[in-house]
Design a protein around this nucleic acid. Structure first.
Lengths: 216, 216
DNA sequence: AATTCGGGAGAACAGTTGTTAACTGCATGG
DNA sequence: CCATGCAGTTAACAACTGTTCTCCCGAATT
């Protein structure tokens, strides 16, 4: 009887997570394509060969990292676009949320920004796929917004893409800003807020040229 | 009076360029941080030790590649923003220019997109610096535009940043689009055009809320 | 014509890499 | 309670890495 049929699998998941964590930390100073299998196992404190019990290659580990990283990004994006409050306040809140997320998971953000165009195809594609899903999700959220009345689905998606890209750029800028100086951070916030505002203004007047004179 | 620069230095610059070219080609399938010195020399056909006659390290070569890649991007950005024709036509022309540049120098574009957030600090910083210069330049160009009357310098820079980032994103999308299928290319063009248009609309109504008479 | 200079070659170095094989110990399911 | 399964280990492999030192030879300088 013994006992929780899970001591075994729990320990496995535990070292697996340790591998992911160690890799993420090592990736602070290099790209995935130069990350070595031995390097990771050494950091964790296990034999190199044990790596194969969890991943078939470092590429595989990278793909797993994508799931983890964008899994943590998922709720953030949803909350960011969620309709709440007036326009100006919404923008401020969105930026604050991004900044908070970068603070909470800097390694994840760095990983996504770096490997999005990185040298490992499967990882790149995994990121692209997830971001496409995010874009679609944001598009749906926008569709439910009053300001999106009369918008074609294609236009909603292009706007969603604009937002998602802008979000990533802003996150990356927060990451680069020295954590010590709050002024650099404030500068990033200011610029990002204005850019979001400009996009918002463009959104409000998007249909002005069309027959429907629905300004306002 | 320095005599003829010589057949000597000419040959040196020639192998130096060969190293840069070979590196750029090898970087199609990996990141700079995993590019090996021996790998590059092997591709060129010279001894590994000869590498040191031209660069102190692969990082150094990477920084040189930044100059080359963004040097070729420089005239493009300038032309793209240059005022010519009506708004809608300008957008189409800008996108065509980007597509053409990606076709002409795909490896350069890939390199910049990849290493902008890549794992090699000096290269990352070199790219950031060059992009900042571009942004400033675009800002100046925008300042000379009639549509920018009444804009603060800070706002001009944030708009310039938006444009530069958008340009890079679009270029990267063209790069990812399979060169064979013109339909994928067309799709990228369509979305990019609409995004630029939306930004343009936002720009036109940016000052609506301020003192000037307007709706609202 | 003689000498210097410098790009490149060659060999050797100490480390590192991914991957294989055969092993050990312990939680697990019968 | 015992036999199986499986995470993890140890040892070994061929291949590869960056870097140093010594040498070569042709162009440049004098």
């Amino acid at each position: 009887m013994s006992h929780t049929p899970g001591i075994r699998q729990a320990q496995k998941q535990r070292t697996r997570q340790a591998l992911l964590d160690a890799a993420l930390e090592l990736l602070e100073g290099q790209s995935l394509s130069s990350l070595g299998l031995r390097e990771v196992t050494r950091a964790v404190g296990i034999a190199p060969t044990a790596f194969y019990r969890h991943f078939r290659s470092v590429e595989d580990l990278g793909v797993a990292l994508v799931e983890e990283a964008l899994g943590s990004l998922h709720p953030m994006i949803r909350t960011t676009v969620s309709p709440a409050g007036e326009g100006e306040e919404r923008i401020a809140r969105a930026i604050e949320l991004i900044a908070g997320h970068v603070d909470a998971h800097p390694a994840h953000v760095r990983f996504v920004a770096r490997e999005r165009h990185g040298g490992v195809r499967p990882v790149r594609e995994a990121i692209q796929e997830q971001l496409a899903r995010f874009t679609a999700e944001v598009g749906e959220a926008l569709a439910g917004d009053a300001e999106s009345a009369g918008w074609s689905e294609e236009d909603l998606l292009m706007l969603a893409q604009l937002y998602v890209d802008q979000m990533l750029i802003t996150a990356s800028l927060f990451l680069e800003a020295p954590a010590s100086s709050p002024e650099a951070r404030e500068r990033v916030s200011r610029v990002a807020a204005r850019q979001l505002r400009l996009i918002h203004v463009g959104r409000q007047h998007w249909l002005d040229g069309t027959g429907a004179a629905g300004s306002r």
